[in-house]
Amino acid sequence: MSHHIVEVKHLQHIYADGTVALQDVSFTIHHGESVAIIGANGAGKSTLLLHLNGYLTANSGEIRIGDFPLTRKTLPEIRRTVGMVFQDADDQLFMPTVFDDVAFGPFNLGLPVEEVKQRVKAVLEQVGAAHLQEKPPYHLSGGEKKRVAIATVLSMSPDILVMDEPTSGLDPFARRQLMGLLRDFQHTKIFTSHDLDMVVDLCQRTIVLHQGIVKADGPTLEIFNDDTLLAECRLEKPLSMQGCPVCGKGR
C-alpha cells in the first residue's frame, strides 16, 4: 500500500444546473491520519465526499486511493477500501433487521455465510450494538442508528473511514460515546462536520473549503487560531477555544 493513501489533484465538479461545487481542490491524506474537512454550507464538503468513493464523476482532476487511480475499473476495490458513512443514518439502513444491514456489505464481497455472521457479531460488539442485532433499524434511537450505520461500513474492513457529519442530531451523551468510538479506530479518518469541538478533539489536521477551493490546510489548532481565516470562511472558533460566556475568563 502506498504511503499516500488519499490523493486528490485539481478536482473540479460542476453540477448539471451549472452550480460550481468544487473549483480546484487538491490535498493528500496519509495513512492513519485523522482529517476534518470543514466549511460553511455550500462550500462543497458533501460533493467532495461523494467523489472519494466514486459516486460522482469529476469534470476534471484526479483522485487516487492507495495505489489505484479512481476509475470505473477500480471502483469495486475502492468502495471496499473507502467506508462511507452518510449523514442521515436512515439512508444507510435499508434492510429489515440490523443483522441484515450489517451483513449486506460482506455478502456483496462474496464472503461465506459463517464468515459474514462472525464479522457482523464482531463489528456490532465493537460499536456496542450487539444487543440490537435482530431489531429493525427504524426502531432504534438516533445514537443507536449512527453506531449501526458505522458497523455496516466497518464490516467491510475498510482502510479509510469517511463520515459526513458524524455527530449531527445526537444528544450530548451519544455524541461523546460516538467520539470515543471514533477515537479508538486505527483507520485513516476523514470527517466533514460543523461540530468544530469534535474536530478539535478528533482531528490533528483540518482542511478548510470555501466556495469550492481549499482555503487552508494545516494543524487543527493553528487553523482555529486564525481569526481572519475563520471570518472569511463563515466559520467560528470551537466553543472549547472560546472564553467562558458567563465570567469571561479565557477570552
Binding site: L50, N53, Y55, P76, R79, R80, V82, G83, M84, F86, D88, D91, Q92, F94, F99, D100, A103, F104, G105, F107, N108, L109, V113, V116, K117, T152, V153, M156
Partner: peptide, 24 residues
C-alpha cells in the same frame, strides 16, 4: 432524491445487483 441516496449507500457497500440472505 432519497431513493438515490439509499442506492448510493448500497453501491458504497459493494451492491452489484444481487441480494443475499443469511439463510442457507
Amino acid at each position: 432524491l432519497r431513493a438515490e441516496r439509499i442506492h448510493m449507500a448500497m453501491l458504497a457497500r459493494g451492491f452489484t445487483g444481487e441480494f443475499h440472505s443469511r439463510q442457507v
